[in-house]
């Protein structure tokens, strides 16, 4: 008990200084790292020729956007377990016209994104009544219904084996690489604007107290629906692009398992950090595929081990840990300044 008492002032101090020091100058180095990373990624295809690595990176870009879109929904306090389904809606809304009506991909991909957005907003409407765990469970079954409808869809959706023969966008994988990289950057930029502006403030306000939010004119329902529609757009878009890339849409890629893994990416990276999902996808997807590829069937052990390590040592995910470290360092520097001032005066 005493130990706890002793620790608490220090903890308070560190959070307090962390909050005060949240200036633009501090965010600067982080942004330049991200910019440099994007440039490296843009130049990478010149260096690596192995199409397998390129495939993994394409997959990574797609999932970075999707995992980020899940997190954007979550900042409004909604633990949405249907993100995979919205990805699936985007994929099938693109695949069905592509396969059966032979519409060109440049039409079907936007169609997929728009379909996911509209359905997302429409379905979010009744779900805005539900909060916390009830919302999570509601969306879990929403996802399950969508998958079942796809599976029960007969020849149109290809049932459980999936719908093959989706027309490819390009012949060369490199073009897919640049397309998905570009879409990821645009998505991340949009989500950054969304979160770090008054819209994000509204979302966070609703998630902290819908009652207080309403009393200052921030409607709960409207903002929650907006968050879901916005998130579903990117999930649907990436789902559609990915299904054109793969040439097939199959229900198993959009079920509960897929959704839970998307959530795992976010939790590993850090649910309270904008770059968390990107880092999480990097850790859970790139590291196993690049470095432990020889394990093949044993690969899931590596991911499970990563999950356990994160759960045990980093409650706020990897980016959360980095932030904490940063705040510690700055708090120490600040304390030194204060000491200097004191001795000087």
């Amino acid at each position: 008990m005493n130990e706890v008492m002793n620790i608490s002032p220090a903890v308070e101090e560190s959070t307090a200084t962390g909050e005060t020091s949240r200036t633009k100058a501090r965010r600067w180095p982080g942004m330049s790292v991200v910019g440099a990373l994007f440039i490296v990624l843009a130049l990478l295809p010149l260096g690596i020729s192995g199409s397998y690595y390129m495939h993994v990176l394409i997959l990574t870009f797609v999932y970075v956007a999707i995992a980020s879109s899940w997190r954007v929904v979550s900042i409004s306090g909604q633990f949405n377990i249907a993100i995979g389904a919205f990805m699936g809606i985007g994929a099938y809304a693109a695949a069905i016209p592509s396969v059966w009506l032979h519409w060109p991909p440049w039409v079907t991909i936007p169609l997929g994104a728009v379909a996911a957005t509209i359905l997302g907003a429409a379905l979010a409407f009744p779900f805005a009544r539900l909060r916390t765990i009830y919302y999570a469970m509601g969306t879990l079954f929403l996802g399950y219904v969508v998958i079942n409808l796809i599976t029960a869809g007969g020849k149109t959706t290809g049932m459980s084996t999936g719908l093959g023969g989706v027309q490819p966008l390009f012949g060369d994988r490199r073009y897919y690489y640049y397309l998905t990289l570009g879409l990821m950057i645009v998505s991340m930029f949009s989500m950054y604007r969304f979160e770090f502006s008054r819209i994000g403030v509204r979302m966070k306000a609703v998630s902290q107290s819908h009652q207080v939010a309403a009393s200052v004119g921030i409607g709960e329902r409207r903002n929650r629906i907006l968050a879901v529609a916005f998130g579903s757009f990117f999930a649907g878009l990436m789902g559609a692009v990915y299904c054109h890339y793969q040439g097939v849409a199959s229900p198993s890629s959009y079920g509960l398992g897929a959704t839970l893994w998307i959530i795992m990416y976010v939790l590993v990276g850090g649910i309270n950090s904008f770059w968390g999902p990107a880092v999480g996808v990097g850790i859970l997807m790139v590291i196993p595929e690049f470095f432990f590829r020889d394990l093949k069937g044993d690969l899931p052990y590596v991911t499970a081990a990563i999950l356990l390590i994160i759960a045990f040592t980093m409650p706020e995910g990897i980016v959360g840990l980095l932030k904490l470290a940063r705040d510690r360092v700055f708090a120490r520097l600040r304390r030194k300044e204060v000491d200097l001032d004191a001795s000087g005066g």
Binding site: V201, K204, Q208, S209, V212, S215, V216, G219, E220
Partner: peptide
Amino acid sequence: QPEQVARLGIGRTFQLNPLFHEFTVLE
């Protein structure tokens, strides 16, 4: 709805005084 009432110009405080706890005072 509560937010519409707020929009019309009725501001209020609460008895148990919920706040946006994770925001700073300024936020």
